[in-house]
Design a protein around this nucleic acid. Structure first.
Length: 175
DNA sequence: CACCAGATCCTCT
DNA sequence: GAGGATCTGGTGG
């Protein structure tokens, strides 16, 4: 299996488009000589402006600084004991992102990581990966296209697990 | 320094 | 569907 990182222009688009198109793509984690691969099956977009649920809504701080990087960078943050992974979308200083909410096992991982905290756990995502450039082929975390992906129906819904801006249709998942 | 809000998850009913 | 476990940095005194 050839695993090539998606280019920056894939991520340099509106978060809703990136969130939708990330379904079926492969999340790749290189770790201690091994390669973990999961197929992305659920995502959520977070907007740069007018989105109270986005971590960037109140401006830049040390916690969310990675959201202000250029498209294709990782925004890794913790929620209680869990580590969550976002990919930054749109250009620099346009702080939007897509949360990877679930992956299916492809290689090296077992079970279904059917929640953002479980994705972080299954693929050993750590804070050290916060801010890395996921379009850089030398990095230990990136997203690759899957040439053999099957056509599956994409569903859209409002986001879950948040208390503000609940009504935006920014959650994408396979039927 | 104290307080508290979370993009969660697991274990009960 | 409710409640608790458990962690970190933002915010305000």
């Amino acid at each position: 299996m050839e695993l090539v990182a998606l280019p920056r222009n894939f991520f340099d688009r509106a978060p809703a488009l990136v969130a939708r198109d990330l379904l079926g793509k492969l999340l790749v984690r290189r770790l201690e000589g091994k390669t973990l691969v999961g197929r992305i099956v659920e995502t959520e977009g977070y907007l740069a402006t007018g989105d109270e649920a986005s971590h960037s809504h109140k401006g830049k701080n040390t916690r969310n600084a990675s959201m202000f990087k250029d498209a294709g960078h990782a925004y890794v943050h913790t929620l209680r004991q869990y580590v969550l992974l976002d990919v930054v979308t749109e250009g620099k200083d346009t702080p939007s992102a897509v949360l990877i909410r679930a992956v299916e096992p492809v290689r090296g991982i077992t079970g279904v990581a059917d929640g953002p905290g479980k994705v972080g756990r299954a693929m050993d995502i750590t804070r050290a990966l916060d801010g890395i450039d996921m379009t850089d082929p030398d990095e230990d975390l990136f997203i690759a296209d899957d040439k053999k992906q099957l056509a599956r129906k994409v569903c859209v819904s409002s986001r879950i697990g948040i208390s503000k801006a609940k009504d935006l249709p920014l959650r994408f998942y396979y039927e």
